[in-house]
């Protein structure tokens, strides 16, 4: 009984630490700084991509969009100049429904895992995307076809199967907290912390490991690859921050999470934006978001360009 009770902490301690709770996030931050009409800009990846292009933010190139069921078979024409491509739902989240094709022949597609997929199965997958299987609230969706990201090797030792990305929380245009999520055998190659992925808090100034947690408990080596998690240093950190900061001007959202991946040749690329980013990042960093938000409100200047803001943070 008391053992169970000990798992709880007091609100006073959380407040002192500046931890942002779900209610406070929704009330004080999201409903205040994220106008509802802006949501489609980030919920629809096709729109996000168009905006990114306009603002000079690096994203994987779009090959095409499939909007209707009768267009499903057009995918072949669309990708005729590409030997590899990615199909994803425009309104998906958390990597649901993302299909990476490494190669294809006249009768089948090859996945990164080496498995093959028949044409029929691919059509079926796209069809599912269009009917809303992976979209928020099951609405009809579009399928986005884009170029494959060739992940940089930096994270190779740190991730079991899945793709590590960097999540940066941006408040009023200032990146305030960052982490990378590393998939594990337990998380089944997924990057969701509650499924057992490792969350690594990154120092906002340097991109270096601050702290690593799995299931809310600190750890120092990756459970599957045994790589030393304390030694992570995200390369091109300033570019990462800049992408995140630019997304503020791009979308007008006062608070969002930017998911950024590192391409071996093209550098950091924005994968998606999230207008309601989760709060687990606080645990990975051992820091409260509320504190960071207050700091921005009080001391950070407004009216700066993205570059100036990054300089302000780094300087």
């Amino acid at each position: 009984m008391f053992g169970w009770f000990k798992k709880f902490t007091s609100p006073t301690l959380l407040r002192a630490k500046g931890v942002l709770g779900m209610n406070a996030r929704n009330f004080h931050v999201i409903s205040k700084y994220n106008a509802r009409r802006l949501y489609p800009l980030v919920d629809d990846k096709v729109q996000t991509k168009a905006l990114a292009l306009q603002y000079g933010v690096n994203t994987p190139n779009m090959i095409g969009v499939i909007e209707h069921q009768y267009q499903v078979k057009d995918i072949l024409k669309m990708v005729q100049d590409h030997h590899e491509f990615v199909v994803k739902p425009a309104h998906g989240s958390g990597g649901k429904g993302v299909l990476v094709i490494k190669d294809y022949t006249d009768d089948c597609f090859t996945l990164p895992s080496g498995k093959t997929m028949s044409y029929k199965e691919l059509y079926q997958h796209i069809s599912n995307i269009l009917s809303g299987l992976y979209s928020l609230g099951g609405r009809y969706d579009e399928a986005l076809v884009e170029e494959v990201v060739h992940f940089s090797d930096v994270f190779k030792d740190y991730s079991y199967h899945g793709v590590p990305d960097v999540r940066i929380i941006v408040y009023k245009g200032y990146p305030i907290m960052a982490m990378t999520r590393l998939s594990t055998a337990e998380s089944g190659g997924r990057a969701n912390l509650h499924q057992g992925a490792v969350g690594v808090g990154l120092d906002i100034k340097t991109g270096k490991t601050k702290k690593a947690v799995q299931h809310n408990l600190p750890l120092t080596i990756h459970p599957d690859t045994h790589a030393d998690l304390r030694k992570i240093q995200v390369p091109l950190w300033r570019e990462h921050l800049l992408i995140a900061a630019k997304a503020y001007e791009m979308t007008g959202l006062g608070y969002f999470g930017a998911d950024i991946v590192l391409d071996a040749q093209k550098g950091p690329m924005m994968l998606e934006l999230n207008a309601r980013p989760g709060l687990a990042i606080q645990i990975a960093n051992g820091l409260g978001l509320k504190k960071a938000i207050k700091r921005v409100d009080k001391r950070y200047p407004s009216g700066l360009t993205p570059e100036q803001r990054i300089d302000f943070i780094l300087g």
């Binding site: 709880f8 630490k17 406070a24 809310n216 408990l217």
Partner: peptide, 23 residues
């Protein structure tokens, strides 16, 4: 209740590692 911005009961458990000493 729509203006309640305090922590949820389950968050007291979820975020407990943040205030534990030695972490």
């Amino acid at each position: 209740l729509g203006t309640y911005t305090g922590y949820r009961l389950t968050e007291l458990k979820r975020f407990a590692p943040l205030v534990k000493k030695g972490l």
